[in-house]
Amino acid sequence: MGYNYQFVPVGEQSLNIVFDEVIDARENRLIHSLADVLIKTELGIIAVIPAYHTLTINFDIFQTDFLKLTTKITQIIKNHSLLTSAERRRIIEVPVCYDEEFGLDLKAVIEHGCITFDELIQMHTSSPYLIYMMGFMPGFAYMGSVADPIAMPRLKNPRAKVPAGSVAVAGKQTGMYPIEAPGGWRLLGRTPVRLYDPKHPEPQYYAGEYIKFKAISKTDYYYIQKLAAAGMYELKELN
């Protein structure tokens, strides 16, 4: 298999497993498999944070330490079967209304890619995106990679407020804003789905899974929004 990685202490109770610094789906999937395996062990691991090329591990200093833990993890990584027997990863469909009211950067992205509006939608919805990591806020999925014509760099001056539900691109990445927040990503549309609810904040999707966008009309947008507000809308699994 031959993965390059090293262990880097981050604090006395945390370490990073650092792989090659690239955005690579194969490497990232390994990180998620490793995260799944490690969190189920009884090695004193409290929490894991998978990211693009790193896996951050918080551990209990009264149960283990850097040396003990890295020795164990090395053995686990060597044991290929644990990591290659990757379980099924869900593909989740997220409805998006690509309307100019929501997609404030639609025009700019269309110009940037020299494409038509229909081509943009086709490009953004054609295949599922891998969730490389979650971060920034609960439910913010960093996904990739989008087709080159719509891979527009982020705004020079970020907006002070990006509305909740906004679906956007930043370079080869795409993502969704679960909560209103400042942000510099290019807005293509908006989903009516509640991606974050403080009363029921249980995650609806996880890093390592896939999101596929589906274009919907404005009528459908408001219909789903009503269902979602009443707690009657659930994200659809495609596999």
Binding site: P50, Y52, M133
Partner: peptide
């Protein structure tokens, strides 16, 4: 520029 990664308390 670096790729984003996990943060910990006290970083």
């Amino acid at each position: 520029n670096m790729l984003s990664e996990g943060t910990i308390l006290g970083n």
